[in-house]
Each structure stands twice: as structure tokens, then as C-alpha cells.
Amino acid sequence: MFPPIFQVAAADPGVTAVLGTSPVRLFPFGEAPEGVTLPYAVWQLVSGSPENYLAGRPDIDGFTLQIDVYAATGSSARAVGKALRDAIELNAYIVRWGGESRDNETNRYRLSFDVDWLTPR
């Protein structure tokens, strides 16, 4: 019922090289724990729907996710984005490259992109 983004990311050596292993700093619901080590990434479900059929139960769900990377430097944010992209592209479709920005209050760099994921039930 949910896209396996964490399982895919946590199994990828490129992702764990930049986001760690204990824990892998990829958090759901668009929120990270307070005081988490940089860099980290968050994801949230933007939309989704089952693949409905007239003669039976859906066998696949489609999801659109937004992924946001936060880091102390722009190059670190881009390195995490690249690692996540490389892991995700083997399992889903990246459909939007979002913006890059820097938060004035925290001075964290942010990179964003969206993914469409088809998940068999």
C-alpha cells in the first residue's frame, strides 16, 4: 500500500554512503527528527491512486512522492540527490526536478524532486 522508497534507498550502497546506515537518514511524512545529522532526506506522499479495473480488485497502486534533501553545503545536497536518483531510477520514474534553495533561518541547503512509483500489491 506504500511505495518501498526506504527499502530501496537503504539497500543501495551509494545512498548509505551519504545518508548513513544506523539509521539511514531518510524520513517519511516530510519531517526529520529534531537535531538529526546533516545531510538527510525526507519524503512525503503527494498523491496516489489504485489501478482500478471493472472486473476485480486493483493489483497495483500508483504514487507520486516529493523528496527533499537538506544539507550543510550545496555540493552535499547534490551528492545526496544524485545517490537517491541513481537508486530510485531502477525502480520508479523521476518526473520533476524541483528547486534548489537555502533557508535563511537555518542556512541549510535544500534540493527537491518528485517520483512516480508503481507498487504491485
Rank of each mutant, 00 (worst) to 15 (best):
M1G: 15
F2D: 12
P3Y: 13
P3W: 03
P3L: 09
P4Y: 09
P4A: 09
F6P: 05
F6W: 15
F6D: 14
V8I: 15
V8P: 04
A9D: 14
A9F: 11
A9T: 14
A10I: 14
D12S: 15
D12L: 02
P13G: 12
P13N: 10
G14T: 09
T16A: 04
T16N: 04
A17P: 02
V18T: 06
V18Y: 06
L19M: 04
G20C: 04
G20T: 03
S22I: 02
S22R: 00
V24E: 08
V24N: 06
L26R: 02
L26G: 07
F27Q: 03
F27A: 06
P28N: 08
F29E: 10
F29A: 10
G30A: 10
G30K: 07
E31P: 01
E31L: 14
E31T: 11
A32V: 03
E34A: 11
E34N: 09
E34M: 07
V36Q: 05
L38G: 01
V42R: 01
V42G: 03
W43I: 02
Q44N: 12
Q44H: 12
Q44P: 01
L45F: 10
V46D: 06
V46M: 15
V46K: 14
S47F: 05
G48H: 05
S49N: 15
E51S: 05
N52H: 08
N52I: 08
N52C: 09
Y53A: 11
L54H: 14
A55P: 01
A55D: 13
G56L: 09
G56M: 09
G56W: 06
R57F: 06
R57I: 07
R57T: 15
R57Y: 12
R57S: 13
P58R: 06
P58H: 06
P58N: 02
I60T: 14
D61C: 05
G62R: 12
F63S: 13
T64P: 08
T64I: 12
L65F: 12
L65Y: 10
L65D: 07
Q66P: 03
D68T: 06
V69M: 10
V69I: 09
V69T: 04
A72L: 02
G74F: 10
G74W: 07
S75W: 00
S75H: 00
S75M: 00
S76G: 02
R78F: 05
R78Q: 08
A79Y: 04
K82S: 06
A83W: 04
A83V: 14
A83P: 03
L84D: 07
D86S: 10
D86I: 04
I88D: 08
I88N: 08
I88T: 13
I88M: 13
E89R: 15
E89Q: 15
L90R: 09
L90H: 05
A92T: 11
Y93Q: 07
V95K: 06
V95T: 15
W97R: 09
G98V: 07
G98C: 08
G99H: 05
G99N: 05
S101I: 09
E105N: 13
E105Q: 15
T106K: 04
N107T: 10
Y109N: 04
Y109W: 15
S112C: 02
F113E: 02
F113R: 00
F113N: 00
D114T: 08
D114Y: 05
D114W: 09
D116P: 00
W117H: 02
L118S: 11
L118I: 06
L118M: 12
P120W: 01
P120H: 08
R121P: 01
